[in-house]
C-alpha cells in the first residue's frame, strides 16, 4: 500500500530540509478597542516541528481558536508574524492565500463542515480537483485514504447519511488528501460523544505516526488531551505551559 507520505514530494528546498513547519513570532490578536478591548492572543512564540501531534488546551475563551485561525491564514494578527514552511503568511493576499491554504493547510472544523450536496468521495476529491490532480491519481488517493480513515464502502454516501463520527472522519480525510504541511483541527471532537471522540483521536494519532503528518488540534477534554505528544496550554490568550511527552 502506498502511504500518503511516500507520495509526497518536497514543496521547496527550505521546507524539505527544515524540520520546522510553523513558527509564530510575538503573535498578538486583539478584538475591539478601549473598554471593549479583548486580548484574544498575547505574544505567542511557538515552533512546531514536522510530525508533531500537538494539543492546544485551555478553557473556553482562552484563545485556542484564535491561534489556529491565525496559523491557518483565516485571520490576520494585530501584530507579530506567522511563518509556515518559512513563508510569511501575513504578507499574502487574495488568491495567493487561497492557494496557500489549498496546498499547505488542512482544516478540520468542530462542525464537520462537509459540502452537503457532495458524497463522501466527492468531498475528498474536491480539494484535489482544485490542485489540478489527475483523475487517476485522485481515484487512487481516495481509495487509500478512505481505507486509512476506516470508511470503505461509504464513498457514495452524502454527509446527511453519515454519523457525526463518520462525517468527521471524512473531514480528516479531506484535510489530509491534499498532502498539506500541517493539519489544523479546532475542537474536532467537541460535537462527538466521548467514545467516538477518542476513536477519532486515536485514528488521527495512527495517521500521524504512520505518515508523519503534522497535527495541531485544540480541545478542552482531558481524555483527548492525554493522547497528544505535546501540550500547549493557553490561559487568557497567553501561552502558560508547553510540554513535550513521550
Amino acid at each position: 500500500m502506498t502511504t500518503l507520505a511516500q507520495n509526497k514530494k518536497p514543496k521547496n528546498d527550505d521546507s524539505a530540509n527544515s524540520a520546522t513547519v510553523i513558527e509564530t513570532k510575538a503573535l498578538c490578536r486583539h478584538f475591539g478597542q478601549g473598554d471593549t478591548l479583548v486580548k484574544a492572543l498575547t505574544n505567542a512564540n511557538l515552533t512546531i516541528e514536522r510530525g508533531e501531534f500537538t494539543a492546544i488546551i485551555g478553557p473556553s475563551g482562552s484563545g485556542k481558536s484564535t491561534l489556529l485561525q491565525l496559523i491557518g491564514g483565516l485571520d490576520s494578527p494585530t501584530s507579530g508574524d506567522v511563518l509556515l514552511d518559512n513563508r510569511h503568511i501575513s504578507q499574502m493576499t487574495g488568491s495567493e492565500l487561497s492557494d496557500f491554504r489549498r496546498d499547505h493547510i488542512g482544516f478540520i472544523f468542530q462542525a464537520y463542515n462537509l459540502i452537503p450536496v457532495l458524497s463522501a468521495k466527492e468531498n475528498i476529491e474536491y480539494i484535489m480537483l482544485l490542485q489540478g490532480i489527475s483523475a487517476h491519481e485522485r481515484a487512487k488517493r481516495v481509495t487509500t485514504i478512505m481505507h486509512a480513515v476506516g470508511l470503505e464502502g461509504l464513498e457514495d454516501r452524502r454527509p446527511a447519511e453519515l454519523s457525526g463520527g463518520q462525517q468527521q472522519r471524512v473531514a480528516v480525510a479531506r484535510a489530509m488528501v491534499s498532502e498539506p504541511s500541517i493539519i489544523l483541527a479546532d475542537e474536532p471532537t467537541a460535537n462527538l460523544d466521548s467514545k467516538t471522540g477518542i476513536e477519532l483521536l486515536d485514528m488521527m494519532k495512527t495517521l500521524n505516526e504512520q505518515q508523519n503528518m503534522t497535527f495541531v488540534f485544540s480541545t478542552h477534554d482531558p481524555k483527548i488531551m492525554e493522547r497528544a505528544k505535546r501540550i500547549i496550554r493557553l490561559v487568557d490568550g497567553c501561552v502558560v505551559d508547553d510540554e513535550r511527552r513521550n
Binding site: 491557518g72 487561497s98 491554504r101 489549498r102 496546498d103 462537509l114 459540502i115 480539494i127
Partner: peptide, 16 residues
C-alpha cells in the same frame, strides 16, 4: 454562506 466559508477556507479561490 457557511458552505462558501468552508470552500474558501480549504482553498477555493474567490473567483471560483
Amino acid at each position: 454562506t457557511r458552505e462558501f466559508g468552508v470552500l474558501k477556507a480549504i482553498g477555493t479561490r474567490p473567483m471560483s
